[in-house]
């Protein structure tokens, strides 16, 4: 009886302490999701009264080639960004982990792009990419239309995205590396394992939880990339960088088709849930947690 009462009191305390977070999550996460679901069944231009249209917005987006293009562009963008930023991030972490002189300085330096506002970075990069007066073309001495060429626009934006994320990714790998027990390396050294073998058979497997986290959050955030694209290309040329978030913005705040934009947001949510579940299944049996 006593223990039950104590437990009940503990529960009450726990919920009291959780209330601020729960209110925040409810107000800014759960409620908006339901509003967007509701909005996706309506037609609304922000000014005229909204009307119920059933599933028409979903039918429209499914048959709209521009939406298909946006999902393809987003997938391509993710395919460009994720492998590069993960490998580079790991490389940077391995270098920083060697505690060479100045590594604290570089660790801070790599983080700078990540803490800067992506919109501001996008604007600055747009200047650097400018075909006529941009610093990039001035350095290479060739006129390359980075952001208005159909083939170069997406890789250019992806490169900026990678550049801004590498420091952040490396931070997580660095934390993961410091959690690898030193005695394993010692044992490997005694057994005469080469540095490469140690990396493949000890470091990499023990980093799996970190890698999983980096991949899941990385893929989700690259599916939602907006600011950099908005600042650099606004989705152009001819939709070649029209990632899904940019398309949602266009529908909602340029064309003022809020219903369609909401339906697209729901579609993105569904896709992201599927991607995340697939990743979970893939990694489930492969994650090795810290030994001992």
């Amino acid at each position: 009886m006593i223990s039950l009462r104590v437990r009940r009191r503990e529960t009450a305390v726990a919920y009291t302490l959780l209330t601020p977070s729960l209110v925040g999550i409810g107000l800014f996460l759960v409620l908006p999701v339901f509003v967007v679901l509701w909005l996706s069944l309506r037609q609304w231009d922000l000014v005229s009264p909204s009307t119920f249209v059933g599933l028409r917005n979903y039918r429209d987006i499914l048959s709209d080639p521009a939406v298909g293009n946006s999902f393809a562009v987003t997938a391509l963008f993710t395919a460009m960004v994720i492998p590069v930023q993960t490998v580079l991030g790991l490389g940077v972490a391995l270098l920083l982990n060697r505690r060479l002189p100045g590594s604290a300085f570089f660790r801070a330096l790599y983080i700078v792009p990540w803490i800067c506002a992506p919109l501001a970075l996008g604007v600055v990069w747009k200047w650097m990419f400018d075909p006529t007066d941009g610093v990039l073309n001035a350095i290479i001495g060739h006129r390359i239309t980075w952001l208005s060429s159909e083939n170069l626009a997406l890789p250019s934006v992806a490169a900026v995205s990678v550049w801004s994320q590498v420091g952040y990714v490396s931070l997580f790998f660095l934390a993961g590396l410091s959690a690898v027990p030193g005695h394993l390396y010692e044992a490997a050294r005694i057994d005469g394992a080469s540095a490469v073998r140690t990396f493949w058979h000890i470091t990499l497997p023990l980093l799996r939880p970190t890698t999983f986290f980096i991949l899941v959050t990385g893929i989700i955030s690259s599916f939602q990339v907006f600011d950099t694209v908005y600042a650099m290309t606004s989705g152009g040329p001819a939709g070649h960088t029209d990632v899904i978030a940019s398309h949602i913005y266009q529908e909602a705040f340029v064309d003022f088709r809020l219903g369609r934009a909401a339906a697209l947001a729901v579609a993105l949510l569904v896709v992201l849930v599927m991607v995340t579940v697939a990743q979970q299944l893939w990694f489930r049996r492969r994650i090795t947690y810290e030994l001992g």
Binding site: F28, L29, P32, V33, V35, V36, L46, Q224, A245, I248, A252, F253, L258, A261, A262, A265, V266, L268, L269, L272
Partner: peptide
């Protein structure tokens, strides 16, 4: 999910 929220928030913020 965050984006769905962002869509709404930006509407609210602008307003």
């Amino acid at each position: 999910m965050a984006l769905a929220g962002a869509l709404l928030l930006s509407a609210g913020a602008a307003a």
